[in-house]
Amino acid sequence: MTEEHLLKGWEEFEPGATLFSFEGKPDQEVHHENNSVQHSVADWRVDKPVHNKEFCIDCQFCWVYCPDTSIIPDVDDKGKGIFGHIDYKHCKGCGICVDVCPTNPKSLLMFADHLPVEEALRQWPEKEEKK
């Protein structure tokens, strides 16, 4: 769905249909209204990943393998990347983060999109015995 405010008249568009990534300089990190980061694809999702920090080892596999740039890392005191949060505006619920999560039990699991996160955490499974 297109946000109404972007539906401008022909005379208001940049010539050549160019789009810009940032408002101002890139190092200010303010994304332009035409950056897709402004656009939600949350309605693509049926199931959502939920993160359980109790088991997470901050391996960052979920970050590197997320096709939707939806695992947003934090930086710890030592300047190292750690799990931050899930960006539910851009997560399409593919489940790759869950698949690549190496912990036992997993620190990321898929739940129905409508299920509150607290409820999902309550339903978290126990450690699985190695097959």
């Binding site: 022909w10 005379e11 249909a17 789009l19």
Partner: peptide
């Protein structure tokens, strides 16, 4: 200092406006 995207796809809500800007 100003990354720019050239050659985006403009579907139904946009194409006509861009073409008419070109025409103008």
């Amino acid at each position: 200092e100003k990354p720019v995207t050239y050659g985006a796809q403009t579907e139904g809500e946009w194409h006509y406006e861009h073409k008419m800007r070109h025409e103008h």
